[in-house]
Amino acid sequence: SEIVVAMYDFQATEAHDLRLERGQEYIILEKNDLHWWRARDKYGSEGYIPSNYVTGKK
């Protein structure tokens, strides 16, 4: 599975969105859409994140 790191904070506005915290790692579950990826955080929460807010883990 692909691990990404959040470059920016993202506040979830929709129920299906996942909040991003800058510097935290997330697991990508689905990339069915170019701009919104389904991800899981370290607490096990899942939701959609803006793909341009994250970068591949170095």
Rank of each mutant, 00 (worst) to 15 (best):
G23W: 07
G56E: 14
E46K: 02
R19C: 15
A12T: 10
N32A: 12
W37K: 02
A6M: 02
E21R: 07
K31D: 06
G23K: 02
F10S: 04
E21H: 08
D33F: 08
D17M: 15
S45A: 14
R22N: 05
E2L: 13
E25C: 12
R40D: 02
V5L: 09
A15R: 10
E14Q: 13
N52G: 12
G56N: 13
W36R: 11
E30V: 06
K42G: 07
N52W: 15
R40M: 11
I49R: 00
R22G: 05
H35E: 09
T55F: 08
N52C: 15
E46Q: 06
D17P: 06
E46Y: 04
G44W: 03
K58H: 14
L18S: 00
V5Y: 09
I49V: 08
V54H: 02
A39P: 00
S51C: 13
A12H: 05
I28Y: 03
T55I: 13
A6Y: 03
A15T: 11
A39R: 01
Y43E: 09
V54S: 00
D33N: 12
E14W: 09
W36K: 09
N52Y: 10
A12Q: 08
K58Y: 13
A6T: 01
Y53T: 04
G23I: 01
E30F: 06
Y8R: 13
E14T: 14
W36I: 07
M7V: 11
E46M: 06
A15S: 11
Y26I: 03
Q11T: 12
Y48V: 07
D41T: 01
R40H: 03
K57I: 14
V4Y: 11
Q11M: 14
Y26G: 00
H35N: 11
S1K: 13
H35G: 11
Y26P: 00
E21Y: 09
E46A: 04
L34F: 09
S1P: 14
I49Y: 02
Y43T: 08
S1W: 15
S45P: 01
E46H: 04
A12V: 08
Y26L: 04
A12S: 12
H35A: 08
R19P: 14
D41P: 00
W36S: 05
D17W: 15
Y48M: 13
K42N: 05
K31T: 06
Y48Q: 07
G23F: 07
L18D: 00
T13I: 14
A6S: 05
H35T: 09
E21A: 06
L20W: 01
R19L: 07
A12W: 04
R38W: 15
Y48W: 13
E25W: 10
T55C: 14
E14L: 12
V54T: 05
I3R: 09
R38G: 03
D17V: 14
Q24M: 11
I3Y: 09
V54F: 03
I27K: 06
P50W: 05
G44L: 03
A39V: 12
A6N: 03
V5W: 09
E14Y: 12
L29F: 05
G56V: 14
H16F: 11
I28F: 02
Y53H: 10
M7L: 15
H16N: 13
A15L: 12
I28W: 02
Y53G: 07
E25K: 08
V4E: 00
A15N: 10
V54L: 05
E21D: 09
A39N: 02
A39C: 04
K57R: 11
V54Q: 01
G23Y: 07
I49F: 06
Q11S: 11
R19I: 09
K42A: 09
P50R: 05
